[in-house]
Amino acid sequence: MFIPFQNKTSKTFGQQFLQSVWQFGAIFALAAFLGFSTNQFRDSRLPLFEKWSMEARLISSSGERLDISLVEAKRMFLEEAVIIFDARPNGDYEKGHIRGARSLPWHEVDQRFMELTKDISVDTPIITYCDGETCELSHHLANFLLDLGFTNVRILVNGWTKWQNANLPIDKEDTN
């Protein structure tokens, strides 16, 4: 083991430890100060406390539930009464997606939403989905569409997995 400067300091271990304790506290305080003051002056300030439960995140700002059951989503799909948006990255969409779903990756939403929503009236039923119980992409996309003025937007939570498990129609992009 290489230990440089071994004889450089005159501090004992106790002194060194005490020094590290106050520095530990000072670094904590400094980081807290920088973090909270930066957050305070940020345009998109993060609230200090927020409800993070799944139920809370499925409620729109106007207080409506945004989630939709698989049974309901299936019924709307079969009636061709809904536009479905896949919020996952394009690569995941190409590997497989709900039949007829449009790819609107959350990370490209600003560039692509105009093109993909221009033929949809504001009251058209829309379903967004991604994959995984904790996947946030469909939530973000749904809230984004609501903010744009679409009035009938729902989220199929864990949509891709649920859809496949129910053996409902899917499509895969031909990569050849």
Partner: peptide, 10 residues
């Protein structure tokens, strides 16, 4: 390294 020198001294 940081605590080692003080440790050996202490």
């Amino acid at each position: 390294v940081v605590f080692g020198s003080g440790f050996s001294k202490g």
